[in-house]
Write a protein that binds this DNA or RNA. Structure first.
Length: 641
DNA sequence: CTAGGGTTAG
């Protein structure tokens, strides 16, 4: 009978088979046979995790065994450990020690030591270590490796190092564990010293070092090691792509992903998280969609993190519908998933929906994070909800215990300033626990311009110039204010000031994706292969615009130029070039998606509205702050940006 | 009587 049950278990392909086998075990009283129960447990635990959490069932089997042996204990301890329940592993170990006749072995020790490390339970950890010495497992590499990891996690990496040094025959894994722990605590140089001293290194050693430099932000050194390694697997590639993605070298990240495919290394869900982040960063929707298709086609598991990356990518690429579609398909969502959707909705001008999502998230018992509040406050800003904004802002610290950061103050100042409550905005800046940055002053200034508060505007601009003395845009703002106020002496003074500093024009650049290739333009760009067509289209556009009554807002141009030259400068703004290229290179009525690195200027905003009507095109522009959907002559931002 | 335990990327 035992043989029959064992082969039944051996051939169990799913939970149904397994339950049948379990029933047979109980019927034939084989549950007293530890050998059979162990096989049952291990078969169950080997089931793919997608069929639900096997732990409750495994526990019920375990606790029904009358006299479990060490093997069964160890099986259960490991099951708890790999399911992130180290406390259960520890209590199983303690239970085991209390049982007569069940002696823990080196397997139990290595598992419980890992558990203590993850729990950062130094008391139990050291006790177990002492017991291990008494029983005599000092020569067991598995136990020693677990101890190296445990002491590092307890904050005593010197002890880890000593254990490694004392090993008579350390193997690669024991070295690799210490390497990884050095990296985890940020001691990359110590890791490097150890790495250099190692006589033998495997892929894990190399990957650990690549990741180490990547976390330091030293992408160059990470790349050096990546290039130097004679073998690269999916972890090496993912680490390196992730390093580029985190430092926003997104084109580099995508280039490397391409090389990875040429190298025939199969990407997994972790690779895709970084690749999608890169797509979102540069707004490459076509590329992002291809990645999504690839994920579906190759059945890469869309877990919570990958799902969140898709939600985020689609939102950042301006496709909020797809973003929400993925969001709705996910069966589990954490705070990052919700926050990505909330911020996405807010940036698309769907303030109401963003606030709705926020309350649903709270109703589900999920604690909001920084990003969720940026989303909520931007939503309030777009809708002009001042009191609601205040309520959310104060609830951050009062209800959720989150200290508002600079960006939250920036949003709040923006909300107040847009509503014309400029003194309150100024007061809030005064009360901030840190020195305001340029974003905060710009938010105040935005309101001052609208409500013609010239004294406050001057104060804001002076502060702004102190923080960013080299940005030419700030001088334009100040000059506009003085001109408006007819304070000519100040205009002259300012121009003198400008001559004394090094004005750096932050080049505005816009990109547009056509046939999955991203084309980038800077103002006055003539480097594109289809430059002739683009400029021809541009003059056609201007003719039609002027026929529709458009007058270039030349007062926005800072230089001392002739009126005609100012018009040319405006007409050559990067977003206009990108749109001209879009118009000549896509079929009629194809939506155009533009990504701009700065805020869109008033003239371009006006022009794009008209273009959307004249050429019957939906145009979606992502600027530094939010999305603008232009359609039929108007924009979803309602002039609010 | 045997099984079984340790390392890297989001």
């Amino acid at each position: 009978m035992e043989h029959k049950v064992m082969s039944l278990l051996h051939n169990s392909r799913n939970l149904g088979h397994l339950r049948q086998a379990h029933a047979l075990v109980l019927k034939t009283r084989l549950d007293a046979n530890n050998h059979v129960v162990a096989k049952l447990l291990r078969t169950l635990l080997a089931q793919p995790s997608s069929r639900g959490d096997p732990l409750p069932y495994a526990r019920s089997i375990f606790y029904s065994v009358s006299s479990p042996d060490a093997f069964i204990f160890n099986t259960m301890m490991r099951a708890e450990l790999v399911s992130q329940r180290p406390r259960e592993t520890l209590s199983l170990f303690l239970r085991m020690r209390r049982r007569d006749g069940v002696f823990c072995d080196s397997f139990s020790l290595s598992l419980v030591v890992q558990a203590c490390g993850r729990l950062m339970d130094g008391d139990n950890g050291r006790t177990v270590h002492a017991q291990g010495i008494k029983i005599g497992f000092e020569s067991d590499l598995f136990v020693q490796t677990a101890l190296i990891e445990m002491y590092a996690k307890l904050g005593s990496v010197e002890i880890s190092k000593r254990i490694l040094d004392d090993l008579e025959e350390p193997d690669l894994v024991s070295f690799n564990v210490l390497l990884a722990e050095y990296v985890r605590i940020g001691e990359v140089q110590l890791a490097r010293d150890l790495f250099d001293k190692m006589l033998e290194r495997d892929l894990v050693s190399w990957n650990t070092m690549i990741h180490g430099y990547a976390t330091l932000g030293d992408v160059m050194e990470a790349r050096n090691l990546f290039d130097e390694a004679r073998e690269r697997d999916v972890v090496s590639w993912s680490s390196m792509i992730g390093a580029y993605a985190r430092t926003r070298q997104s084109n580099e990240a995508l280039k490397l992903f391409h090389e990875m495919q040429l190298a025939n290394v199969v990407p997994d869900n972790i690779t895709m998280v970084s690749v999608l982040a890169a797509c979102g960063d540069i707004g490459a929707l076509g590329m992002g969609k291809m990645i999504h298709e690839y994920i579906k086609r190759t059945r890469i598991e869309v877990d919570m993190k990958l799902g969140t990356s898709l939600v985020d990518m689609y939102a950042k690429c301006g496709d909020i519908d797809s973003s929400l579609r993925v969001f709705n398909q996910m069966d589990r969502r954490d705070v990052l998933t919700w926050s990505s959707a909330i911020l996405g909705l807010a940036n698309h001008g769907s303030g109401q929906a963003a606030l709705q999502f926020f309350s649903e998230m709270i109703a589900e018992g999920i604690e909001p994070d920084d990003m969720a509040f940026v989303g909520v406050l931007s939503a309030c800003s777009h809708m002009g909800l001042v009191d609601e904004g205040w309520t959310y802002f104060t609830s951050m610290s009062d209800v959720y215990g989150i200290a508002p950061k600079m960006e939250h103050y920036g949003c709040m100042v923006d909300i107040l300033a847009r509503a014309g409550r400029l003194q309150e905005a100024r007061e809030l800046i005064r009360k901030m626990p840190f020195a305001p940055d340029a974003v905060v002053w710009r938010a105040l200034l935005g309101g001052c311009r609208v409500y013609k508060e010239s004294d406050l505007a001057e104060e804001a601009t002076v502060n702004l110039l102190e923080l960013e003395p080299n940005a030419d845009g700030n001088y334009v703002l100040l000059s506009n204010i003085y001109t408006q106020e007819k304070k000519w002496d100040k205009v002259i003074h300012m121009r003198k000031m400008m001559r004394n500093v090094n004005i750096e024009k932050v080049p505005g650049s816009s990109s547009i994706e056509v046939d999955n290739a991203v084309h980038e333009f800077i103002a006055g760009d003539r480097s594109h292969p289809r430059t002739e067509e683009i400029y021809q289209m541009l003059s056609e556009m201007l003719e039609k615009l002027k026929a529709a009554g458009y007058k270039p807002l030349t007062s926005l141009v800072s230089h001392d130029l002739e009126e005609r030259q100012k018009e040319i400068a405006l007409a050559h703004h990067s977003e206009k070039l990108a749109i001209a290229f879009g118009l000549v290179s896509t079929n009629p009525r194809t939506p155009l998606r533009i990504v701009k690195n700065l805020r869109i200027c008033d003239d371009c905003h006006l022009v794009i509205k008209l273009i959307s009507k004249i050429y019957d095109r939906e145009i979606i522009v992502r600027d530094r702050n939010r999305f603008h959907h232009f359609l039929g002559g108007s924009c979803t931002c309602k002039e609010y940006w």
